[in-house]
Design a protein around this nucleic acid. Structure first.
Length: 200
DNA sequence: CACTAGATTTTCT
DNA sequence: GAAAATCTAGTGG
């Protein structure tokens, strides 16, 4: 049942998926260890109209996974040392995805601490690169499917409906900075930065 | 605290 | 050859 509604969510437009994934639980099973956390921050990327997307120019070997079925896992390597996790959206042959930017650790916390060489809970997975390291995500997961993989899964959670969602422009990009395509759970302490919509 | 620079590799120009 | 959907350590108030 829960999987069914997640499947339904994945068929929706990218921005709705970005909002809908907030509050869902992300679990990985890597190297015999299970780790999971609640998604608290996402960003939408849509290749057709979005200059910041890896798919904006054309289809290449690197961005091929973003053109796959909705729910496909797209992992890329950046800045010489970090992986980032995306969930592919939109119909096949459309290059779009949602970047998972932060989670609230919920289980396997000791494993995450060891992988990150950090004992602090805050800061364990509040950023796209940190989250991948904490969950053991790398390019081995590229092309897996979120509803079918043995190694990575997403589930909808109960408290899903009553979430207060904030949004802002995206972080770390130099083009299309005007698009308010970053979403997060308002006031949640595990968001990577600027975790509330208050203006100053 | 705030701010700056360096790490390091994949990918496309 | 340069830039990249980032993070950390280091410096100076």
């Amino acid at each position: 049942m829960a999987e069914n509604s997640l499947k339904k969510l994945l068929m929706k437009p990218t921005l709705e998926v970005a909002r809908g994934l907030l509050g869902c639980t992300l679990t990985t099973r890597v190297g015999g260890r299970e780790t999971s956390g609640i998604i608290v921050e996402t960003e939408a990327y849509h290749g057709d109209i979005d200059e910041a997307s890896h798919c904006y120019r054309k289809r290449t070997a690197r961005n091929e996974a973003m053109f796959g079925r909705p729910g496909t896992v797209y992992v890329y390597f950046i800045y010489g040392m970090h992986y980032c996790l995306n969930i592919v959206t939109e119909a096949e042959d459309t290059g779009a995805a949602v970047l998972i930017r932060a989670i609230e650790p919920s289980s396997g916390i000791d494993v995450m601490q060891r992988r990150r060489h950090s004992r602090k809970l805050e800061g364990l997975a509040n950023g796209p690169g940190k989250l991948c390291k904490a969950l053991g995500i790398d390019k081995k997961l590229l092309g897996e499917h979120i509803l079918e993989s043995q190694s990575i899964a997403i589930e909808m959670s109960r408290q899903f409906r009553a979430i207060d969602i904030g949004c802002s422009s995206r972080i770390g990009i130099s083009r299309a900075q005007d698009l308010p395509w970053r979403f997060f759970i308002n006031g949640n302490k595990w968001v990577s930065c600027c975790g509330s919509s208050r203006q100053s």
